[in-house]
Amino acid sequence: MRRALLLLVLVLLAGCSQRYSAPGLGDQEDPALSGNGRLLVSVVDRGGRRSLRLVERSTGRELPLPGLRQGQPHRSPSLSWTGRYLAFIRQRGTRPEAVLLDRLSGRLQPLALPNDRLPERLSLAPDGQQLAVQVLRRGQLDLELFRLPGLEPDLPAGAPLP
């Protein structure tokens, strides 16, 4: 009886999670969600190239990410509330580079960190106005916060304007 109950709980729990594999994809890592979980971004291995994959969870459809065919490996993606902004780290030659994609305009902008800092991991604030960066500086990993000037805030529907 106890075993049956445990099995039922396990089945119910299993039903609560969704996986997002697809044919031809290898390892999937580094997930991030939009504000209400509508969008999922992760780093997937496509034939040895580690690149971003953005999925609309309700349909399982992969959404296009224009301009991101280069600069692999990609890593540490982070989405704003509606998924308008996508920050991540790409490789530029021998150096990692933080970049921001505005999915509304299609504009991809490098995020210029102060000198002697290399980005290791990113986290974008839900409204897209601030960015936390784990930077490698003089052999040490530090946490630094930055303001992203000139970006329109990305707010949930119905939220008061700042």
Binding site: V99, A112, L141, L145, R147, L148, P149
Partner: peptide
């Protein structure tokens, strides 16, 4: 040059610790 980030100066000095800081989430 792209978007020039503005450091939160007063905050960053308070976040600074000797040793490695990892896995930030905002």
């Amino acid at each position: 040059q792209g978007l020039r980030l503005q450091p939160l100066m007063g905050v960053n000095t308070r976040l600074s610790t000797p040793g490695d800081d990892r896995s930030p989430s905002m």
